[in-house]
Amino acid sequence: MHQFLQQIFSGLAAGAIYASVALALVMIYRATDLVNFAQGEMAMFSTYIAWTLVNAGLPFWAAFLITLAVSFVGGMAIERVLIRPVENAPVLAAVIVTIALLLIFNSTAGWLYSYTVQDFPSPFPDRPVFGALITTRDLGVIAVTLVMLAMLFIFFRFTATGLAMRAAAQNPESARLCGIPVGRMLAIGWGLAAAIGATAGIMVAPVLFLDPNMMGGVLIYAFAGALLGGITSPVGAVVGGLIVGVTENLVGTYLIASQLKLTVAFALIILVLVFKPNGLFGTAIIRRV
């Protein structure tokens, strides 16, 4: 029984990691109608920026805020320079650009920072609690994920910019006619997604350890989580991420061998796409032409 609980709590801790990256995926999808395959690597790269700042002697939270700002600007710059030229091309072109970005960020990080595993400081104390079921550090990750979720929810639901962003993503022409600066909205969307990714990276780096491949596996599980919850829904991303985390542990431990855990994630992606393409919480996007 204790082992069963251990697996569930381990799954929740891992799920919170998937959820935080899934949030960034949802952000960019809501803002630009795109799936960004480089989201994980951008987050990893942001984490290296924070790591450099912390090593230069800055306090953790100062480094954190600077990294968010740099990532926001960097995300906007990527949209302006690399995504904008393929804006009107078929969606495949943008997908390929993001895959190229994935490789570029991964190799550049390896070249700049080497592939050696780095320790990353956690802002939260590291103590096992509740009979060693979970650590305070994992609880911290879960808490930050929930805070990000709340902020995103409020942003999209209650702010004019959030609303304008949704409009710009879903129907650029009409949005433009209503006076929404679509170009700026798309750039802000990329910037925000990069900042959310940076937060995710900084939160998970103390748990996964920082190296250029830190986010490779995470991204696949984050996709599974985002799709399961519904790629348009921040709440869905978090619930989906947590479900994926717990499911892979339980299935891997009790039903099949642990080498098939990744297969579970892919099976989940396919099942959701076939049977419930909008996910648990997602809404169907209806386009009027």
Partner: peptide, 20 residues
């Protein structure tokens, strides 16, 4: 015995199973 794939984000679950 437990195994992991290099694509797994963590091996926490495997360690828990071994302790169990």
């Amino acid at each position: 015995t437990q195994s992991y794939e290099t694509t797994d984000p963590t091996i926490d679950s495997q360690v828990v199973a071994l302790q169990g």
